[in-house]
């Protein structure tokens, strides 16, 4: 699954500019203009601007941004559903931009699958035929692809719905079909484009749990697009925040909340309960001269909230350690302050 250099998706300097003279904008000073000015000057819209990132095999990588930030365009560029204007993309070592149509189809059939916001199911086919569609276009014989489709339906919890029609299912079940379809070809990478945005909040929570479970069970590399910060923090090992086509910050949930790169990100993460995202590393301080150093030791990556029981049991401050080295201490007051949401 992993390529030789241990990177599942590698994107370098990716641009997508919509408009008649897109390639002329690139490389000219216009490319640095902000979107409104660019549009007024050239009539072009830069949806993705100089984006670079890499995703490790098995990682859940989240791209988060508001609508119009270019995240959906970005994910479509990865398999060239939208032709990128410039940049390099490699998926599992394969140079996507240089691929011939046949190689590209091969990539889409076997390596990368996509899940869509509006499901994109085929209403004239039974659920099992929807799930088997990807295998069907590969030319897999009917009996084999149906067998595989039923396995996958069991995996996503749709046992017994194989013969139903998509319009007989609820929204959450439809997206399970979408997930199953993407998983059926056993791809290395799953691209999920706002898969749960069209669902009710309760169902959305179930489906998020489902993704966590599937990720644990099948271990696919996932690139997850969302406009919902809570969803991003919940699912993403690393998160890229996009604004106006560019990535403004890329990091773990902790890094985004603890050290926002700019006002925009800070504004975004303002309402996130810090004690549930940040670890002790962010609030520990060097011990005062009169403080006891015989309290319980906790690793630095412990989430603040999880340190509460230890703090309750011990009168002495908690020692925060990393690789057997003392980083600092945290006492009850520090923990309470961060639980109450006081800024640092």
């Amino acid at each position: 699954m992993a390529s030789s250099d241990g990177v599942a998706i590698e994107v370098r300097g990716l641009w997508k500019i919509f408009g008649h003279r897109a390639d002329r904008v690139l490389g000219s000073p216009d490319a640095a203009l902000d979107p409104a000015a660019l549009r007024a000057r050239t009539g072009c819209v830069a949806a993705v601007r100089d984006v670079s990132f890499s995703v490790r095999p098995g990682e859940v990588f989240v791209v988060m941004g508001l609508s119009g930030s270019g995240k959906s365009t970005l994910v479509r560029c990865l398999t060239r559903l939208i032709e990128p204007t410039a940049g390099e993309i490699s998926i599992a070592g394969e140079d996507v931009c240089a691929a011939s149509p046949a190689r590209l189809r091969d990539l889409r059939r076997h390596r990368v699958s996509m899940v869509f916001q509006h499901f994109g199911l085929l209403p004239h086919r039974k659920v099992v035929d929807n799930v088997a569609y990807g295998l069907e276009v590969q030319g897999v014989p009917r009996a084999r692809r149906h067998e595989r489709a039923r396995e996958i339906l069991t995996l996503v919890g749709l046992d017994g719905h194989a013969e139903a029609r998509p319009d007989q299912l609820s929204g959450g079940m439809r997206q399970r079909v979408g997930l199953a379809r993407a998983l059926a070809a056993d791809p290395d990478v799953l691209l999920l484009d706002e898969p749960f945005s069209a669902l009710d909040p309760l169902i959305r929570r179930d489906m998020q749990a489902e993704v966590v479970r599937l990720h644990r069970e099948v271990g696919k590399t996932m690139l997850f697009i969302t406009h919902d910060l809570a969803e991003a923090l919940k699912l993403g090992e690393r998160i890229a925040i996009m604004r106006a086509g560019a990535i403004v910050q890329l990091g773990t949930a902790e890094e985004l909340v603890g050290a926002p790169a700019d006002e925009y990100v800070a504004d975004f993460v303002r309402d996130v309960p810090r004690s549930e995202v940040l670890s002790l590393r962010w609030i520990c301080r060097s011990p005062g001269g009169d403080e006891r150093l015989d309290g319980p030791a906790l690793p630095a990556r412990t989430i603040i909230r999880d340190a509460v029981p230890a703090a309750l049991e011990s009168d002495a401050p908690i020692r925060v350690v990393e690789d057997d080295e003392l980083l600092g201490v945290v006492d009850r007051r520090d923990i309470l302050a961060s639980l109450a949401g006081a800024g640092s």
């Binding site: 990539l107 869509f116 994109g120 569609y133 276009v137």
Partner: peptide, 8 residues
């Protein structure tokens, strides 16, 4: 789009 993304 879904069909294209599956390599049809």
């Amino acid at each position: 789009e879904a069909s294209t993304s599956l390599g049809a």
